[in-house]
Amino acid sequence: MSGARWLNLRRGFYRFRRSWLSMVGLVIVAALVLVALVGPALVPHPEHVAGGINTTARFLTPSASAWFGTNELGQDVFSLTIAGSRVSLLAGISVVVLAAGFGTLVGAVAGYYGGWLDEALMRFTDLMLTLPSLILAMAVAAAMGPGLGNTVFAIALSWWPGFARLVRGEVMAKKADTFVIAARALGAGTPRILGRHILPNIASPIIIKMSLDMGFAILTVASLGFVGIGVKPPTPEWGSLLSTARGYLPDYWWTAIFPGSAIFLAVFGFNLLGDGLRDVLDPRARR
């Protein structure tokens, strides 16, 4: 890495640090990732995470021994919420990466070639946009059966059009740039022009959208879990934890409030981080 590039990164980080909301987002996201990586190994009751129950300790209020209380099966809510972060985060990342990958491919091809190919791809994209995403995801999950892989696939299927439209616009703007014309005059093929010249120069808005979308992807995964077609118990997942807890509100509020807060925190953190990244990477949108 050259000196100037390093300096640019440091300058960017300085701008990022000056906004305390962005820093809050970064801290939340970093904490979530850490918890997802090492948390499940450190929880006080790993046997509850694996599906074990303890009927003598049902609905204990939050206390020093069980920080978030216990649920209707006597399981430690703290252990379940911590363990649930792994599923939620993994599912969120998978959805966003799949959607961004496929959306970028479709958008780049449509934007670069233009003409009838652009028309056909974008009308297909519009068609996918008109389908309500949650309903489509429910239909796919219902048809293919519940499970983490199917949930991710179903949500990604309704998620890529946003990326396709974003990338198409950016590619159309970039392909008229002189350095792209220079590459064409040199005889560079389309894969090289897209991969080496256009896409590296439009990476910033894609990364920003991925970060902003992470929160909503986690929320959507939780929603599918909540309506009962997401990840199946005993695998702990925030949405399904919330779904079971719903029946015991408001008396046993702690069974719902903690998984719910976890979802809130994840969405909030990724949104703040995305906003901060946009301020650093996309000077046009800066206030």
């Binding site: 740039d177 002189t178 350095f179 014309i181 220079a182 590459a183 005059a185 040199l186 005889g187 080496r196 010249h197 590296p200 120069n201």
Partner: peptide, 17 residues
């Protein structure tokens, strides 16, 4: 294309940043 080459007007826009 290897036999005919071009130098562009704007050196700020003609190099990939």
């Amino acid at each position: 294309r290897a036999r005919i080459q071009i130098v562009f007007q704007d050196p700020y826009a003609s190099l990939n940043p």
